[in-house]
Design a protein around this nucleic acid. Structure first.
Length: 667
RNA sequence: GCCGCCUUAGCUCAGUCGGCAGAGCGGCGCACUCGUAAUGCGCAGGUCUGGGGUUCGACUCCCCAAGGCGGCUCCA
C-alpha cells in the first residue's frame, strides 16, 4: 500500500511517499519540540494514523496550540499524582488556561503547601516513566462503566454535545465521540486514565518544565449553587528557561503591585478602622488624584460637558424609581432608617424614611434632566460629575484600589435624540481613547457586550438598532472589536475599552453603555421641533471607571514611576553638601514660581543617601548642585533612569522641567 | 458570600516544641557629610489584630470576630 501525504512544514510543501501505515510520530517523532500535528486543519495526536492525501502540519510546543497541549497533558499528570497521593480523590475537570492549567478534585481535605511539593515530586516521577498518552474511542456505556467511580465524569458524559467552553467541560467531552486517554507505562500497563477530548503529547517525557503554583476552592462547573471542589493550579512551559522566565515575570509584576507601591510611595492606605475596601489618600496620592481629575475636567470642558453635583445619600424612593432596589439591592449598603417615632408601646407613631448611600449617579442626573422642560435644542445634554458611590462588594472580592466599596466615578450621562446617537457615540469613543492616551495608555481593544436573552428589558428592535450602532462605531474605530455575547446589563448594550498595560496585562477601562430603561422609569422627555414629546436616549459613560481604580492601574502601568505631570514630587533638589542648600532653595523658588512641585533635600543624610532616597521615591528629576554648579549658576540633572546632564543653567533647567510637565512626557 | 492560608514595632520579617519578645529599614537625637543608590553612635517604639476558652502559666493550643492574601462566584 502506498500513502501520499502532503506535508506542510513552515512555508514549504513537500510530497512524500510511505510504504506502511504512517503516523505523526514517524514524521515528527524525532523532534521533541513537536507535540502534535494538524491534519487537514484539525489538531490531532502524533500517534494518529494518516491517510492518503492528508495535509499534515506539525504543531510546535511553543505555539499557542502546543502550549495548550503540554499544559493540558501536565494537568493529566497532576491528576494522576493526586490520585496516587489521595486515592479517594474524585476527578473534576482539568483544562489548560493562560500560562498554565488547573485540575479540580473532590478530596477529603484541602491541599496544603506540603501536598503541592509532594505532588510535584509525584509528577516528576510520572514524567520520568515516559507514560504514553493513548487515545481510545469509547461508547457512552463503556465510558460509564470504566468511570463508574468518578461521579463528576459521569455527569460530564451526560452533558455530551451540550458542554460549553465557559465551564471548561468541553475540554473533557467534545461535541463528537467520547474518548478516553490512557497513560500507559513502558511495560504496557495502564497507570491512569481520564475522559478527555485531547489531544495530548505522545508521552509524559515531553513535559520538560512544570510547577504547581497554588490551590484553592472552585465551584463545580463554575456555579455557586454547586459543591466546591479543590482546584490545583500549575504551569508548564517548553523549557526550564521558559519556566524561569515566567516565574521572573510574576516577580516583576509583583513589584508593580499598586498595593505594595501604594505603601512604599506613601500614596494611600486602607485603615482597618475605616473598613474593608475604603481607601484614604495620603498627600502624595492626593496630588496624583488632583492632577488626574484636573486634566480630565479640562478635557470635559473642551468637549462640551456640563458639570453637576449630587449628594451621597438619598431616600429609597429614588432607587425604587430607577429600579436599582429591585435589581441590585444586594450590592447596596443597607438603608439608614431615620425620623421614625414610636409610641411607648412600641407601635409606630411616625413611619420615618429609608435613606441609602448611592451606588450610582444616574438617577440623580435623570432628575437634573427632568428638573425643567427640555428642548431638542439642548441635546445632546452631557452631565458630568466626579460622583462618589458606595457599593456593598462581597468581602471576598475586595482588592486594593481596583475593587473597593467606596469609589469616585468620572461619570457622565448623555441625553440625546435617537438621531444623534451614532454621531455622539463616534465622537465619544474618540474622546475616550484620546483621553486614555493622554494618561499614557495606548494599546487598546474594544469589547461589545450584547443582550443576555435571559435578562433584559425593552423591545427587541431597540436593542437591535442600538447594538448595531455600537458595533458600527466600534468597527469604525479601527480597533479590534471582541464580541461579549450576553455580557450586557439588562437595560442596554455596551462597548468597553480594554487597555493593555506596560507588561501586557489587560484592564477593562472605559465603558460606554446605552440605557433604554431609566429614561422610561423617570419619564424623561424633550420637546421635538414638531412640538411632540419625545423620550431621549441615555448614554452612561465612565472613562477611568473609578478614579481609585484608575490610580491603581496607572500605578501598575508605570510601576510607580509616574510621568512628571502626575508625579507627586516632580523635582528634588539635592545639595552635594549643606553649604549649597541656600543655592538650591533659590532654584526651588524659581521652579515653584513656575508651578513645579519641588522639594529641597536639606536633611542631614549624606549625598549618596539623598540620591538613593530620591531614586527609590521615583522622583522624575533630581537637580544636584555643588561647587562646580554654583560657580557657573547651574545645576546638574539626574534623571530617573540614572542618566545625567551636568552644568545646565538654572533658567534652562526650569524650562526643561516645565516643558516635560506641560507635554505630559513619559520620563 | 464560599474554600484555604495569613495577622509579632510605622514597614519587611525573625522568634519562643506553652515559661513575662528580637533584627533591619523607617522615626527621633548627636556627630559626620563638596559629587551620583544606604556615614557612625545613641534613643524611643509592641497589652504579639480583637474577644472568649483550655492551662499554674497563652504571642504560642482551641473557638469566635475583624482585617489581609490566593482562588471561586459576583461586578448595575
Amino acid at each position: 500500500m502506498s500513502i501520499t501525504l502532503s506535508i506542510t512544514r513552515s512555508a514549504s510543501k513537500e510530497q512524500q511517499a510511505f510504504e506502511t501505515t504512517t503516523t505523526g510520530l514517524d514524521l515528527f517523532g524525532a523532534d521533541r519540540s513537536i507535540v502534535a500535528m494538524r491534519v487537514n486543519g484539525a489538531v490531532a495526536d502524533l500517534a494518529t494514523e494518516l491517510a492518503d492525501g492528508d495535509e499534515v502540519e506539525p504543531v510546535e510546543m511553543s505555539s499557542p496550540e502546543g502550549l495548550a497541549i503540554i499544559r493540558h497533558s501536565a494537568a493529566h499528570v497532576a491528576a494522576q499524582a493526586v490520585q496516587n497521593l489521595v486515592p479517594e480523590a474524585k476527578l473534576g475537570i482539568g483544562p489548560p488556561i493562560t500560562d498554565g492549567f488547573y485540575y479540580d478534585f473532590e478530596v477529603p481535605a484541602p491541599f496544603t503547601p506540603e501536598d503541592l511539593r509532594s505532588l510535584e515530586r509525584g509528577m516528576s516521577q510520572i514524567v520520568r516513566e515516559r507514560q504514553k498518552f493513548v487515545r481510545r474511542v469509547v461508547t457512552d456505556d463503556q465510558a460509564r462503566a470504566e468511570l463508574a467511580g468518578e461521579p463528576f465524569k459521569l455527569e460530564l458524559i451526560g452533558l455530551k454535545g451540550n458542554a460549553t467552553d465557559t465551564d471548561g467541560a468541553s475540554v473533557e467531552v467534545g461535541a463528537g465521540e467520547l474518548t478516553i486517554y490512557d497513560n500507559v507505562r513502558r511495560d504496557g500497563t495502564t497507570a491512569w486514565k481520564d475522559l478527555c477530548r485531547g489531544p495530548h503529547v505522545p508521552h509524559t517525557g515531553y513535559l520538560n518544565a512544570f510547577a504547581l503554583t497554588r490551590s484553592s476552592a472552585a465551584y463545580w462547573r463554575g456555579d455557586q449553587k454547586n459543591q466546591q471542589l479543590q482546584r490545583l493550579y500549575g504551569t508548564a512551559w517548553p523549557s526550564r528557561d521558559d519556566l524561569k522566565a515566567y516565574q521572573n515575570r510574576l516577580v516583576e509584576a509583583a513589584k508593580r503591585d499598586h498595593r505594595k507601591l501604594g505603601v512604599e510611595l506613601d500614596l494611600f492606605s486602607f485603615p482597618d478602622e475605616i473598613g474593608s475596601g475604603l481607601a484614604v489618600f495620603h498627600p502624595k496620592g492626593g496630588i496624583l488624584r488632583m492632577e488626574m481629575e484636573e486634566y480630565s475636567r479640562r478635557k470635559h470642558v473642551e468637549a462640551g460637558y456640563s458639570f453637576v453635583n449630587s449628594p451621597h445619600i438619598t431616600k429609597g424612593q429614588l432607587f425604587e424609581t430607577s429600579g436599582h432596589l429591585d435589581w441590585y439591592a444586594d450590592g447596596m449598603f443597607p438603608p439608614m432608617h431615620i425620623d421614625a417615632e414610636l409610641n411607648a408601646d412600641g407601635s409606630v407613631r411616625k413611619p420615618g424614611q429609608d435613606y441609602y448611600l448611592k451606588p450610582m449617579n444616574c438617577p440623580f442626573h435623570c432628575l437634573i434632566f427632568r428638573s425643567r422642560g427640555r428642548s431638542y435644542r439642548e441635546l445632546p445634554l452631557r452631565l458630568f460629575e466626579f460622583g462618589t458611590v458606595y457599593r456593598y462588594e462581597k468581602s471576598g472580592v475586595i482588592h486594593g484600589l481596583t475593587r473597593v466599596r467606596g469609589l469616585t466615578q468620572d461619570d457622565a450621562h448623555i441625553f440625546a435624540t435617537k438621531e444623534q446617537l451614532a454621531d455622539e457615540l463616534t465622537s465619544l469613543l474618540t474622546f475616550v481613547l484620546d483621553l486614555l492616551k493622554d494618561y499614557g495608555l495606548d494599546d487598546f481593544y474594544l469589547e461589545l457586550s450584547t443582550k443576555n436573552p435571559e435578562k433584559f428589558i425593552g423591545d427587541e428592535q431597540t436593542w437591535e438598532i442600538a447594538t448595531e450602532t455600537l458595533r458600527q462605531v466600534g468597527e469604525a474605530s479601527g480597533l479590534e472589536l471582541v464580541p461579549d455575547p450576553g455580557g450586557a446589563a439588562f437595560y442596554g448594550p455596551k462597548i468597553s475599552v480594554q487597555a493593555r498595560d506596560a507588561i501586557g496585562r489587560t484592564w477593562q477601562m472605559s465603558t460606554i453603555q446605552l440605557d433604554f430603561f431609566e429614561p422610561e422609569r423617570f419619564e424623561l422627555e424633550y420637546t421635538a421641533p414638531d412640538g411632540s414629546r419625545q423620550r431621549p436616549v441615555m448614554i452612561h459613560r465612565a472613562l477611568f471607571g473609578s478614579v481609585e481604580r484608575f490610580i491603581g492601574v496607572l500605578t501598575e502601568h508605570y510601576g510607580g514611576a509616574f510621568p512628571a505631570w502626575l508625579a507627586p514630587v516632580q523635582v528634588i533638589c539635592i545639595p552635594v553638601a549643606d553649604e549649597f542648600v541656600g543655592y538650591l532653595n533659590g532654584v526651588a523658588d524659581k521652579l515653584r514660581a513656575a508651578g513645579v512641585r519641588v522639594e529641597v533635600d536639606s536633611s542631614d543624610d549624606r549625598f549618596g543617601k539623598k540620591i538613593r532616597n530620591a531614586q527609590t521615591a521615583k522622583v522624575p528629576f533630581m537637580l544636584i548642585a555643588g561647587g562646580e554648579d554654583a560657580a557657573k549658576g547651574a545645576v546638574s540633572f539626574r534623571y530617573r533612569d540614572g542618566t545625567q546632564n551636568n552644568g545646565v543653567g538654572i533658567d534652562e533647567a526650569v524650562a526643561e522641567v516645565v516643558r516635560a510637565i506641560q507635554t505630559r512626557a513619559r520620563a
